[in-house]
Each structure stands twice: as structure tokens, then as C-alpha cells.
Amino acid sequence: MSKKKRKIRLGRRILESLDIPEECYSAAAKITLWGKETLLIEKHKGIFSCEEERVRLFTNLGILRIDGEKLTLLELSNERLYITGKVEGIAYEA
């Protein structure tokens, strides 16, 4: 195990022992779904593709795929993305 990875793991353990929420230090995307029609994705890394039935986003853990109907990117910024429309599924692509 490299020195860098060891440092990261140590830092994570310290933060976990302090009961700090993971979303504060994790680089993984945070996905919030309200009902069926509003989806908020934080800490995304950009749009990979945007269609009415499918939106694919770059994230720290790979490509996040959102399936649905009439999907619209209501708000787009560096780290936040609001999607409205009929959301039918969310999945990470292998």
C-alpha cells in the first residue's frame, strides 16, 4: 500500500472517530431525490451526456446514469445539478 493511500485511510479513520458526517469529507456524489420529479446531485464532475430520457454524469465513483422522461437540467453549476422530470432510475455504470 502506497504512502498516500495510507495517509488517506488514516485521515478517514480519524474523522470517523470524531463522528463527522461522511458527506463533509467524502468526494463521492450526494444524490437527493424528492418524490419522483426532482433530483439534486452534488459533487458531480460534469455532464457526460444529456438526453430527454437519460442523463449521464461524471462522478468520483464513475458514471452516474439517470433514466426517466422529459428530463431537464433545471440548474447547472460546478458542483450542483438539479434535474426535473419523471425520474425512473438511478444507477452507476460499471
Partner: peptide, 27 residues
């Protein structure tokens, strides 16, 4: 490659919203 251009826009701090795909090559 409109998605790539949208990513550039957001990185540049341009406010853009209500993005909707209307065709194969149009947004």
C-alpha cells in the same frame, strides 16, 4: 459534443439553466 461545451461553460462560471435536449445535435 454539446455536453462538453456545457461543462466548459459551468467551469467558466456562466449561469445556464433549464437545459433540455431538443434534438440529436440541439439543446
Amino acid at each position: 459534443a454539446l455536453e462538453r461545451f456545457l461543462n466548459r461553460l459551468t467551469h467558466s462560471g456562466v449561469e445556464i439553466w433549464h437545459i433540455r435536449r431538443t434534438g440529436i445535435n440541439t439543446v
